[in-house]
Amino acid sequence: MANVSWKTLIKPVSQSKEFKPGNAGGMSASARTAQGMDKALVAFKAGNKDVKRPTIIKKGDEVKFSVRYANQALKLDGKDGEFVVPADKFEEIYGAIKAAIVAGEFDSQLAPMETKSKDRGAKMVAAKAAKK
């Protein structure tokens, strides 16, 4: 093994542009929502075995789902947070919704959710610092 001077190579996370707390990897709210949708779809296809509260559930020939960001459901139709679609059309519909999110169609809804999430995170950091 090479003799590496690890002490000169490490740095605190706060000095990283990629992993800095509050940076969320530089992801926009729409990108983070799309990533969450991908994870929910993978969990659904695997039978939701390791999911505490699944956002996609199939019952009979219908699938119930919600699209979430910062622990809140997006109001895809402007008023409702949960939806039901025919099971055979689910992935096509879900993909179209994801494309709309990535295209920015829900940015006006995501912006206040993102602000609220960042504020909550800042309060948690402040509370943790106050305990030290």
Results as ranks from 00 to 15, higher is better:
F106S: 09
G78H: 07
A122I: 15
F90Q: 02
K75F: 07
K59A: 09
K52T: 12
K58F: 06
I56C: 00
K58Q: 14
P54E: 10
K52M: 11
A46M: 03
A111L: 14
V102K: 00
G81I: 06
F90I: 02
I97N: 09
K79H: 11
A87H: 01
N48W: 03
D80Q: 13
G78D: 05
K118F: 05
A70C: 02
I56V: 10
K64I: 12
P112E: 06
G95I: 04
E105K: 15
K59F: 06
A70W: 00
G121Y: 09
A100M: 14
V63E: 06
F90G: 05
G47W: 02
F65G: 03
K89F: 07
L76W: 01
G47C: 01
R68F: 00
D88G: 14
D61R: 07
N48T: 06
K75Y: 01
P112S: 11
G81A: 12
D50H: 02
S117F: 13
A103H: 10
E92G: 12
E82T: 13
K98H: 05
E92V: 11
M113A: 08
D80Y: 10
E114M: 14
I93D: 08
A70K: 00
G95N: 05
A96C: 06
Y94E: 05
A111N: 12
V84K: 15
V51D: 02
P54S: 13
V63N: 01
D88A: 08
P112T: 07
A99T: 14
K49I: 13
L74S: 04
K98S: 05
E62M: 12
F65V: 04
G121E: 10
S108W: 05
